[in-house]
């Protein structure tokens, strides 16, 4: 990692954090919305308790673990959502004319994307903590096999969501109209990523669609660690798949960043919004 990259990551993370968390209301909102989402997830499940739908889900996750399943799916999904929203916010740099100024500097482009993603880590970490406390309050039978596995769970969320965030960010660099990617990726990720429906319950085509989203494997790992107390050996395949997806996303991001800057220099679209 060169000095420009470190400097760019730091500068961008601090700037984004100061831009977004500019008032105490933002902190209040951060306290409220994860709690509301926690309740929303719980009461979304409630009406189906004992129903055919509930039985269908229970077939895959166990009768007594449906709420825990939804809860940890939501935690994982919201972790990713924070990073995607952060990428979405970055697309407003084009409107404010600051994107051109960033490209005017010799800053490390990947560093900027990483810095932007890291700024939302603060939000995600907070949300994760609130959810985990909620989970511990609601479920007394949760257990984790070791502190090391807790670290694995956190890394399984942080690294893939950062990779996903910078990938989305690099897509937004292409033009002002790439907001379509937000629509194309966000909802299918929620649906096919297994955040609310068990991944094994999907038909083959949906499994293939869901398999490309890192959320699918992150959620799977988090659930296994928190709900089943698995050891590292039990999640090797998921970790391997997740690592491959992350490497793929990272390489794709590097390529997209290079191509998008070359495209912008060719077309002058950086100033269009």
């Amino acid at each position: 990692m060169n000095k420009y990259m470190l400097s760019s990551i730091k500068a961008e993370a601090i700037k984004q954090h100061k831009s977004v968390y500019h008032s105490s209301l933002m902190y209040f909102s951060m306290l409220i919305w994860p709690v509301l989402d926690l309740f929303a997830a719980y009461y979304a499940y409630k009406p189906f308790e004992g129903s055919a739908t509930s039985e269908f889900i229970a077939k895959w996750v166990g009768d007594d673990k449906i709420f825990a399943f939804i809860l940890f799916g939501s935690i994982s999904y919201m972790f990713f959502k924070c990073f995607v929203q952060s990428a979405w916010r970055f697309s407003y740099e084009r409107v404010s004319g600051t994107l051109e100024l960033i490209y005017l500097t010799p800053s490390n482009r990947l560093g900027i994307m990483l810095g932007n993603a890291l700024a939302s880590l603060f939000e995600s970490a907070w949300m994760f903590t609130v959810f985990c406390i909620g989970a511990l309050v609601f479920f007394t039978d949760l257990y984790i096999s070791s502190a090391f596995m807790l670290v694995i769970a956190i890394f399984s969320l942080v690294i893939p969501s950062i990779c996903w965030g910078i990938f989305m960010n690099s897509l937004f660099m292409f033009s002002r109209d790439t907001g379509i990617f937000f629509t194309v990726f966000q909802s299918p990720m929620e649906l096919f990523g297994g955040a609310k429906i068990p991944y094994p319950a999907f038909p083959i085509w949906a499994k293939l669609a869901g398999g490309i989203f890192p959320l699918t494997w992150s959620a799977n790992i988090v659930r296994k660690i928190f709900m089943h107390g698995v050891a590292l050996n039990d999640i090797q395949i998921e970790l391997l798949l997740l690592s491959l997806i992350c490497i793929g996303l990272f390489l794709l991001t590097l390529l997209l960043l290079k191509k998008s800057e070359a495209y912008a220099r060719k077309t002058g679209n950086m100033a269009l919004f």
Partner: peptide, 23 residues
């Protein structure tokens, strides 16, 4: 023009940001 600076940051923070991008 008025664009091309971060409105929610202070003048010092804006300059710090761009200064860091030049390392």
């Amino acid at each position: 023009g008025e664009r091309m600076v971060y409105w929610r940051l202070t003048a010092t923070e804006n300059l710090e940001y761009f200064g860091k991008l030049y390392n």
